[in-house]
């Protein structure tokens, strides 16, 4: 006889909430990168304001997870599901914050003479990170450990791109001292994107923990 059906339903809806937070974080990053490329200050401001929706969603997940622990006292894989929902939602919330940080840096660039520069590189890094975030959320949905493990390789790729990018913009800074403020903001943006990739890797580690009960260090 299958018992604890209500508990299983509550666990599934908790996961749905986290997946929906994942979509929100992923959309925030995609929209931010789009607004960065279009120098759309109005849109960037909207993204900054809307971050509270992501924060709020994380709070709801925290409350629901705490209630589940209190009322159902889950153990073993059930408990891991609840703990992982807390961990992943906290990482997703940080990803939301980092998109806000990107938006703020882009707003500062939009106010500077000389514009952005290096658009192609920054967009490429953003797009790859967005793919990574999408992939990790999908791996979480399916409990796919193999996919989660692949995420680490993308993180290495983004780390490398970040290092090269920062080097190249600083070389430009030497040649064009007038661009120093623009380049500083660009360095920030690339750093924030790289951090998002790190948080996505964290999420991948949590997926492995949820499924196998073992902690893996992917980065």
């Amino acid at each position: 006889m299958v018992i604890r059906e209500q508990f299983s339903t509550s666990l599934s809806s908790l996961k749905e909430e986290v997946l929906s937070l994942g979509s929100m974080a992923e959309e925030a990053l995609a929209e931010t990168m789009k607004a960065v490329s279009r120098h759309d200050s109005e849109k960037l401001n909207i993204i900054i304001t809307n971050d509270r929706l992501i924060n709020n969603k994380e709070l709801i997940i925290n409350e629901n997870a705490t209630l589940l622990i209190t009322k159902q006292q889950p153990v073993a894989s059930d408990l891991r599901k609840v703990v992982v929902s807390l961990k992943i939602s906290s990482d997703l919330e940080r990803i939301g914050d980092l998109s806000v940080d990107i938006a703020k840096a882009a707003l500062r660039i939009n106010e500077l003479p000389g514009g952005q520069g290096f658009e192609q590189e920054i967009q490429k890094m953003g797009a790859r990170t967005n793919e990574m975030l999408k992939a990790v959320i999908s791996a979480y949905r399916d409990g796919n450990v193999l996919e989660a493990q692949k995420i680490a390789a993308i993180d290495d790729e983004i780390d490398k791109a970040y290092g090269e990018f920062v080097q190249s913009i600083f070389k430009t800074a030497v040649l064009k001292p007038g661009m120093i403020e623009n380049i500083t903001q660009l360095a920030y943006i690339s750093r924030y994107i790289e951090r998002i990739a790190d948080y996505s890797t964290n999420i991948a580690e949590w997926i492995i923990y949820e499924v196998n009960g073992r902690r893996f260090d992917l980065n």
Partner: peptide, 15 residues
């Protein structure tokens, strides 16, 4: 936390 046998897991999880 991580029982090796599924029957253990099902029992301690109240299934």
């Amino acid at each position: 936390s991580t029982p090796d046998d599924k029957r253990t897991e099902d029992y301690i999880s109240g299934r």
